[in-house]
Amino acid sequence: MDNSNLNHAEIEPANSRSAKTLMPSYKVSTILWLLMLALTCASAYFAEQPSLTMNLVMAVLLITAIKAAMIVDYFMNLRGAPRFWRILLMTYVPAVSLVITATFAIDLS
């Protein structure tokens, strides 16, 4: 490596268009957005229920996990990202939900 310009060895356009997955189109984003608004209202409706049952807890947390998956995959555009990062982000909300469900399980039983 003896070129006079001693910058880094491999230089290539950091993120040429072809190399990366593009963001979802407006239409897809809008559909996902409306879907998430609906899901949120649904989970809020659950709050009105008089008593808190285990499957209600799991339903609400499932909705949250679905919404989170949409955001991570489409809005954060991790669909095209290396698998390590996608798995890391996708399992975050389910993992926290599991802990929360566990604390409810222990309390209710």
Partner: peptide
Amino acid sequence: MGLESGACYWHMVDLLWLILFPLVYVL
């Protein structure tokens, strides 16, 4: 890249609220 970084940070803040909302308000 800069725009994507800012966007990803903002989506993370939204993600956190997605968990906070059921945890504190709903359940």
